[in-house]
Design a protein around this nucleic acid. Sequence first.
DNA 1: GGAATGTCAGCAGA
DNA 2: CTCTGCTGACATTC
Length: 693
Amino acid sequence: MGSLVPFQDLNLCPEPPLPATVNISTSATPSATINRTTTFNFLTPKIEPKQEPFDEPTPTQTIHQQENFLFSVSNSTPDFIPNPETTPPANASSSADDQNALYSEYFRISELFRSAFAKRIQKYGDVEVLDPDSRAIVPVPEQSQLTPETSPTDGSNLERALSVVVSRKKAGRSNELVRVTNLGIDDQRHFRDLVRRTRMMYDSLRVLVISEEEKRTGPGNGRRARGDLRAAAVMRDRELWLNRDKRIVGAIPGIEIGDVFFFRMELCVVGLHGQIQAGIDTLPASQSSSGEPIATSIIISGGYEDDEDSGDSIIYTGQGGQDKFGKQCMHQKLEGGNLALERSMHYGIEVRVIRGFKYENRVSGKVYVYDGLYKILDCWFDVGKSGFGVYKFRLSRIEGQPEMGSSIMKFAESLRTKPLSTRPMGYLTLDISMKKERVPIFLYNDIDNDHDPMYYDYLVNTVFPLNVFGQGSNSTGCDCVSGCTEGCFCAMKNGGDFAYDYGGILLRGKPVIFECGNFCQCPPSCRNRVAQHGLRNRLEIFRSRETGWGVRSLDLIQAGAFICEYAGVVLTRDQAEVFKMNGDTLIYPNRFSERWAEWGDLSRIFPEYVCPSYPSIPPLDFAMDVSRMRNAACYISHSSSPNVLVQCVLYDHNNLMFPHLMLFAMENIPPMRELSIDYGVADEWTGKLSICN
DNA sequence: GGAATGTCAGCAGA
DNA sequence: CTCTGCTGACATTC
């Protein structure tokens, strides 16, 4: 049976619903309640008891044709499509004329649809209605069932926390179709922060699942747990997925064009795309008040041979008709996602486009980049490369959006390999570190004649006073000749667990991290040596109109990855007094906001979670002079919503008074996006502001 | 030896 | 309940 209801039964509202205004609390935690007013444009046509018939075309004629059309397209054995069992799929000339005739019929019917709906379609775009019960964010769930007296790192409890209640009541997705508009600056910051914290939690859980599994089986033994799936399941169980109570058309609050994701599940968790495998996300027909499915987002990731992607315009192949190996083996049908895209085209509803592609050294898996909103311009039935019928959709990127993330990534890739031919003007040097770092650091200015960073000596690591290294009394290390293992001496120094996973990703922020060092027997490849290896990502110091000098990466930086040290010459309190009188600019590390505490914060999963206080260090009581020697870090801009955190690390000495200040990514940072640190209290000595301006 | 292909467990949504 | 879907990790092959 056809997937569309006859058109006189469509529950489309004859008039837009009346506007109303309500305050919607979008605060994530009850303790920090901030009421915000957010406007939702409701796109779901409301069911009205009485339906006015359409004016044109005449109902009888249209219904008749529509039914024919639907039966012929959506039946399992459509009569206009050659049966692959009996008819050779390719070059089937005998049926080509039939197909052509049916295509024409399809277009003719489509045009009738279009004109019939035209008036009502126009109304959808600018309706402003607020629902008193609406919330853009799922409420904070009840406290979980965990017993509060045990520690989260206790094995059995952890297992329980990470397990998912099998008989859980599934909280389905909402059927309310809305478009979020009128977000003020505060709202944007709020949602951005919410998304960031949600993603941080997802990532922390994901690596926790994997590292727990490796603890049990040992590294490299057995198949690794699907941390991506488990983390999502745990969060879904606790209702921590975002945007489940709304089907959002258009942009998702808090998600920017160019944001990068490593897992399909992560897209579900933030509500960008709600299907874990399917490429077309829809409000299904059964939940739509018009009885028609509506598409809200698509993923284009090269899985269909008939796709043509040229960036701003896409020819997207519908779903279905493939065997389990991804080969087209039968004709596609106008149902499910395909019908939804066609309906979205009719209603002028834009779709989010996410591109998935293999990137760099990621062996398996892809990266997914949110590339913004597209309009569906056209839809037709075509014979694909394998000779089977496929639905094709022509999409065009809506104007006025920031540049596509995927094209920025391509641009950054060519900058890495051939910077001068990609961008002939503006480079002041192709390595400001003069080969002192493992990878070159570009200096780029296409704005003015400022060459300032050229005039400083490049400092790779912080310089400490000689007496910091002590007399060797603190020189203790492990005996792990083949690399550190669970429970070794250095693990115990860090409170029993290593701070990094096997890929060098920071698992959980701590007051200080003891990496293995000169006094350890382990090799340089030890998992407990990360920040000491220095820069890995190719950075670029660039001139910006907004922030003076800034820093960005040409590589994609994974959340939790080490970036670089905040280097300078350490001055004791007494020395700092003298330098200050000379008018030199100093960094006071104790003013950095303690963002490390947010990293790996699982208090919403483990109620008994407390911020790590061990290993503890005394308050930082030194200053750093960067007025003569510095590295890239001191060009990083300030932000109260930063993407980089400062983590204290010790490795070449054990003096707790003088740790290295190491910078780690707080989120996946796409190439060419500016790095930022929370420099803390804005006063006369606040970091970069006083240095570079 | 790196890219391509195969296999297998996995799970949410419809 | 069953089925489908532009996964992701790893083993194997080319």
